[in-house]
Write a protein that binds this DNA or RNA. Structure first.
Lengths: 247, 247
DNA sequence: ATTTTAGATATGTGATCACAAATCACGCAA
DNA sequence: TTGCGTGATTTGTGATCACATATCTAAAAT
């Protein structure tokens, strides 16, 4: 029974991924009464984003509940939210949900939408950044380059998103930022894979656009900012298209 | 106690809005085993979109459960999904959710994002529509104009979205369509209000762009299609901006 | 041997109960 | 009258139980 075995292995993965964060931690102080359902949601989300829960992994309510030490109820609400976010898909009516896995084609579509949105966001952001924003971007850029040197993939991606987030947020349209943020979420697992490969092959073309974008923001050069983000995202899309017809 | 009274009135509204669809209907046949949680979600969603559940209305789990004739559990999952869709907001940790109400400023932001996305979608769609797509668009356009004449606001809006949906879908990027669709969802309550006013004042500027877009699609004129959707959405945004400083 | 069907198991989903947190009301004190 | 505190009510949230449905196993029939 190979299916059984694979499932068991996957459940081991899930356990490893979920119990880590807050297993035996003392409650400490929680100024905002934290909801169990939210904690489960966060745990599942980061587990999916890091790739610890690979695409296709089944999300069984009882298993997850036992692993995080709650009943099934908060798990169900968490899974419902994951579905709406696009991180999980319900396979059928009474068959539960699995971690969503994107085909390369779907990822290309996502990157196309990201391009149209982020080009606009970069244009608006570059025209409106404050000096403090530029400082933030500079700090994030430095942190990112340090993380890349030290091969901390996850941190590098976080810093990259931080940099762009401050730029886009400066544009003054929170809705635009929200939509982009959700697309980032769906891209994350792929980005982790791609960045890991890039770091292992000492290919730093992934991290070159950011300093240039920073300089464009510092100069309030909206034109240059749009050009750079466009190039960055089209090259990312081209990397994806290479995967469509592998070698 | 004025708060109590207002709540009671609102609950009456909710009841009227929810029991209509499927109160005493016999189960009939359901080829796909329909989930109660999904039914509740649909009921709440359409109630919100029609404006029967106005922005700010509290969504109390027990009340909604009693009205739709279920327990509180499916209601909770439905509300969680509504939150993630942006149709409801949780006010605090143990204080439940209310129907989200958008400020005019937020709506303007939504329309800005819609503009950037739909302009792109129209460009891609106009270049790729099939003859069958054009036929569909033509039918939707005719239905819309008939509905406008007969002052059926809801139907007119549905047909309008149908027309654009076939155009945008022809572009071949389902992700793009999904994002736009979600933004439409959030705009709906406002669109209902705006369209109702327009129809009452015999102002049909709302419905003039669609035939032109249809013709652009028929001619596979991507340039014209982008121009028209841009104009349509900017004029919608300008109507919104007029509401920022009322008269 | 292949297909089908019946039972068994696993698992999602709905209902009910119980608890916790927040708001409200009332009352007391300054 | 105003401020604060305490009890009561409301309401969201979590746990447990019960059921429905799907999948799987195995046996039987053609």
């Amino acid at each position: 029974m190979p299916g059984k075995k694979a499932d068991a292995a996957q459940q081991q993965e899930i356990k490893k991924a979920l119990v880590g964060p807050q297993s035996g931690s003392s409650p400490a102080f929680s100024i905002t009464p934290t909801l169990v359902a939210d904690q489960v949601y966060e745990a599942l989300r980061t587990a999916i984003l890091t790739g610890e829960l690979a695409g296709g992994s089944p999300l069984r309510v009882r298993d997850v509940a036992e692993m995080v030490g709650t009943s099934v109820m908060p798990v169900r609400e968490a899974i419902r939210r994951l579905e709406e976010t696009g991180l999980a898909t319900r396979v059928a009516a009474h068959r539960g949900a699995v971690v969503r896995e994107f085909t390369v084609g779907e990822l290309i579509h996502i990157y196309e939408v990201r391009a149209t949105l982020e080009i606009e966001a970069a244009r608006r952001g570059a025209a409106n950044v404050s000096d403090a924003d530029v400082d933030r971007m500079e700090a994030a850029c430095a942190r990112m380059q340090k993380a890349v040197k030290e091969r901390r993939v996850w941190d590098a991606l976080d810093d990259d998103e931080d940099l762009l987030r401050t730029l886009y947020t400066a544009g003054g349209n929170p809705v635009l930022m929200d939509v982009i943020e959700n697309l980032w979420l769906q891209c994350r697992p792929y980005k982790v894979i791609g960045a890991t490969e890039a770091i292992e092959h000492d290919d730093d073309s992934l991290w070159t656009p950011q300093p240039a974008i920073l300089e464009a923001a510092r100069a309030r050069d909206a034109k240059a900012a749009t050009k750079l983000t466009k190039e960055s995202l089209t090259s990312a899309r081209q990397r994806l298209e290479k995967r469509l017809v592998p070698r």
